[in-house]
């Protein structure tokens, strides 16, 4: 059974939002989440696939409502809690 992230081919999401300001992050916290992901991944706390899996396990309603880096944050919280690390 596919999970909520598996949206290839689904309809109903509207036109592609084209607005682009060239900025990778739109708040400082987004940059910190990105950095935490890279450092913890680099340290072997989790693999890329484990991180993706943690994103893909987010309950469907929360997944669809969350922004991109909010999903990353949720995945980091989940993985660290499951490992009893932080």
């Amino acid at each position: 059974m596919s999970r909520v992230h598996d949206i290839g081919g689904q309809t109903g999401f509207g036109p592609v939002p084209m607005a682009e300001d060239g900025q990778p992050f739109h708040a400082d916290w987004e940059a910190r989440v990105f950095a935490l992901n890279r450092v913890l991944g680099g340290r072997g706390v989790f693999t890329t696939d484990e991180f993706r899996d943690a994103i893909e396990r987010i309950p469907a309603e929360e997944y669809l409502a969350a922004g991109y880096y909010e999903r990353w944050l949720r995945a980091l919280e989940t993985l660290l809690a499951e490992r009893g690390l932080a």
């Binding site: 916290w29 450092v39 909010e70 944050l73 660290l80």
Partner: peptide, 26 residues
């Protein structure tokens, strides 16, 4: 959300899993 990130970062640093310098370097 910003407070959640701050808390998470503090816990990660306290646990010795990352340093401020490493995060800034990324």
């Amino acid at each position: 959300v910003a407070a959640r990130v701050r808390q998470l970062e503090e816990r990660v640093i306290a646990a010795g899993l990352a340093t401020d310098a490493e995060l800034d370097d990324v």
